[in-house]
């Protein structure tokens, strides 16, 4: 079955380029342009994995992650934090908050695919 990845990201350019990489690797891709929308879509489509940006208008990535992990409907979906900004102890913070991984933009397409494969694989 085709696995769906949900990208929660406010930059259209990042959505389009990430989508291109993941679709070429055989994933189905859905996107949401802010945290609220992302949470709603996560509940609706139950993706195999969520790629979550941090700096977004409205609720930011950290808050979105907290809400996703608190809600039993979405808490089991692996989340990869996907950020272009420097965060002090970003990796540690992500893991502590329940994210499966932490990934920096710009990225190497192969690395992204590898990471997504890895965490999709862990999903039931």
């Amino acid at each position: 079955m085709e696995r769906t990845v949900l990208i929660v990201e406010d930059e259209k350019l990042i959505i389009v380029s990430t989508q291109m990489v993941l679709e070429a690797a055989g994933f189905r891709v859905e996107s949401a342009v802010n945290g609220e929308d992302g949470i709603a879509k996560a509940k609706g489509i139950r993706p195999a994995l969520i790629l979550l940006d941090i700096m977004m208008p409205g609720i930011d990535g950290w808050e979105t992650l907290t809400r996703l992990k608190r809600d039993p409907e979405t808490s089991d979906i692996p989340v990869i934090i996907f950020t272009a900004r420097e965060h002090v102890r970003g990796h540690q913070k992500s893991t502590e908050m329940g994210a499966a991984d932490y990934f920096r933009k710009p990225f190497e397409p192969d690395e992204l695919i590898e990471l997504v494969e890895k965490h999709c694989g862990q999903e039931v």
Binding site: L13, T18, V21, A84, F107
Partner: peptide, 11 residues
């Protein structure tokens, strides 16, 4: 700077 660069690099 990284946001547009992500597009260039990926494409």
């Amino acid at each position: 700077l990284r946001t547009p660069l992500t597009g260039i690099k990926t494409f």
